[in-house]
């Protein structure tokens, strides 16, 4: 694989940079591929629009940022509108159905899932919204193995929250499976 590019976007404080790091670490450390993760953020620690990008490849990764996105995750309307221009034709668009109403024009594979709601209602904590999202995009993108992501989450999340985060991840995988009908 030459280059697979994903962008995880939302607002500051949703944990998307951590989600990006987990995806990159899963690819490199547990799947033995190459990956690079970058981020861009505004002055706000909370709110605003924030994005993390992950480029996965089997070869060297020179330019570290996304050029033509294979996948965009948008957890807020603002981030969906602001960051969708780089999504390539036929690319994957995953949105939080509870928070993103207007989709960008274009020919994309769109997946709507109530990501925040799953975190709150099924897992019990909004703070794991990012990990639910990681589960969903892992399943839908299919570029990083589910097991590698599981290990990467366990290596990254704070001690004592492993069970909560695993539940969030599994709920994400489950929601994605329903969306793609497997």
């Amino acid at each position: 694989m030459d280059r697979y590019e994903m962008r995880l976007s939302g607002s500051g404080g949703q944990g998307l940079i951590l989600a990006g790091k987990i995806m990159a670490e899963a690819a490199v450390i547990y799947d033995g591929r190459n990956a690079v993760q970058t981020q861009s953020y505004g002055p706000e620690a909370r709110g605003g629009a924030s994005k993390a990008e992950v480029v996965i490849s089997d070869g060297d990764i020179d330019y570290p940022k996304a050029l033509s996105l294979d996948l965009l995750l948008a957890l807020t309307q603002v981030s969906c509108t602001k960051y969708s221009a780089d999504l390539k034709e036929g690319g994957i668009l995953i949105v939080d159905s509870g928070l993103v109403k207007d989709l960008p024009p274009g020919n994309f594979q769109v997946y709507r899932a109530p990501i925040t709601e799953i975190a709150v209602k099924k897992v019990g904590k909004a703070v794991v919204t990012n990990i639910v999202a990681v589960g969903i995009l892992t399943k839908i993108a299919g570029v990083v193995s589910e097991d590698a992501v599981r290990k990467a989450i366990l290596a990254r999340v704070p001690k004592g929250t492993e069970e909560l985060n695993m539940k969030a991840y599994e709920e994400g995988l489950k929601a994605a499976a329903e969306l793609i009908g497997t």
């Binding site: 990006g20 790091k21 990159a24 490199v28 190459n34 990956a35 690079v36 993760q37 970058t38 981020q39 990764i61 570290p64 940022k65």
Partner: peptide, 8 residues
């Protein structure tokens, strides 16, 4: 970019 790029 270099400071905030996480890579191998």
């Amino acid at each position: 970019i270099v400071g905030h790029t996480t890579e191998k």
